[in-house]
């Protein structure tokens, strides 16, 4: 009756412990009490070497839209008011989508995180990279008085 099942069942049991559980939508942002983002005029977006330019470009555009002078590259210059670093995580579900995006605004001399934002959206409620960047950066600046 279940001639095929015995082969499948051990595989399923082997795979089960790998799973970490289910996922959800989440958006958080922090602003360090010692940070004053209002004094920032120039920003450098530190591009991840593996980035094909899409995420980096979107972050550059977003900060330009907020009135900053923005440059980008893979090194970390000290002659700017702030560095912006990011970590993007992608998943595949029929197509590739951005699962999570973390953006951090840092002191260029000490790398200290002045402010950061993180957004996570799983497949069913996925957002475009542009929407993810907008959400993360807008949430960061909601913390600024």
């Amino acid at each position: 009756m279940f001639s095929g099942m015995p082969r499948v069942f051990p595989m399923l049991v082997l795979v089960a412990p790998l799973f970490t559980g289910c996922a959800v939508n989440r958006a958080t942002a922090t602003l360090d009490p010692s940070a004053n983002l209002n004094t920032i005029k120039t920003v450098y977006v530190v591009k991840i070497p593996e980035d094909d330019g899409i995420v980096d470009g979107l972050i550059v555009k977003k900060f330009q839209s907020k009135g900053y002078t923005v440059t980008t590259g893979t090194d970390k210059p000290a002659n700017v008011d702030a560095l912006v670093t990011y970590v993007d995580k992608w998943m595949w579900d029929i197509t590739m989508y951005m699962l999570e995006l973390n953006i951090t605004i840092r002191d260029p001399k000490t790398d200290f995180p002045l402010a950061s934002g993180d957004s996570l959206h799983t497949s069913l409620t996925r957002k475009s990279p542009t929407e993810m960047v907008d959400e993360v950066v807008d949430n960061i600046y909601k913390q600024v008085k």
Partner: peptide, 26 residues
Amino acid sequence: LSVSLVRLSKPLAGFSMTVTMEDAWS
């Protein structure tokens, strides 16, 4: 003392789970 969780990097699956955490301490 202010400690802000900047990034919590977690794996989705695996036999060994390695988590990296960055906090801003001031």
